[in-house]
Design a protein around this nucleic acid. Structure first.
Lengths: 127, 127
DNA sequence: ACTCATTAGCGAAAGATTTCGCTAATTCGG
DNA sequence: CCGAATTAGCGAAATCTTTCGCTAATGAGT
């Protein structure tokens, strides 16, 4: 028995992507240093997760370099966009506004950022 | 080997919560009808998932009624809020604004909703 | 009370994710 | 070039999630 497909990013996959978005292209050693700091896992685990993610094309590897250099194959932005869409669909039944309100309320936004939202709002209202 | 704690809502858990948020308090039969329509799983599966979720206190059960009546123990709003916070933390490193912008852009918002966002914005800017 | 249908639940199996032990290959310092 | 350290990787195990078979309990109709 068990499960079938569906699949999003898993917990560790997202953690690793975050590290790569943050560090930029890096060797396993550096990625592992961060992951290990976060959760105390083994070096082999990091290597394995990267292999899994390579298979899923979430990361790319430059094997001409030594040690190999790894980089994210998806951007933070596109990933975020996808996850937002998913969240909106799954929790708010497509009503993105509730999410926006939640997010705004919990945000510590600078005036500049708020202005940016306001500008987008103007644009959406066609002013 | 394997995994350790952490845990968010899982896929099916969220599906079931959605159903309960939508239907309101319901017997397994009704919950199952929906879940089965979504993914064609067995009645036993629905019962089991509810049991698991009861254990995690995601749902409540009224066993005085017959058949038992199940209801969500967490609200759509609080769940959404938590997930938004999580998403913001995990993908945007706490910068909620990027998420807000993504969400606004992908939303088909009515003028009323946009106004609501605008009002909240005013409030946040202390006007 | 008896039969049948519905409801409740356990426990094990299947699938998915995460972990690591162990080995091989590569690189580095001498 | 040789031994030690670092890097790469496979394959199996641990854990978590989802699924269901099978049995027991409950309730409805006769």
């Amino acid at each position: 028995m068990g499960r079938q497909g569906a699949s999003q990013l898993t917990e560790v996959e997202l953690q690793i992507l975050r590290i790569l978005w943050d560090l930029g292209p890096s060797p396993v050693r550096d990625i592992h240093a961060r992951l290990n700091a976060d959760k105390g896992t083994n070096y082999s685990t990091t290597v394995k997760m990267l292999a899994v993610m390579l298979e899923k094309e979430l990361v790319k590897r430059d094997e001409t370099a030594s040690p190999h250099i790894w980089r994210a194959a998806v951007t933070r932005d596109s990933t975020g966009k996808k996850m937002v869409k998913d969240l909106v669909d799954k929790v708010y039944d497509g009503a993105a506004m509730s999410l926006v309100l939640h997010a705004l309320k919990s945000a510590k936004a600078s005036p500049e950022e708020l202005d940016e939202v306001r500008r987008l709002l103007d644009e959406l209202e066609g002013k």
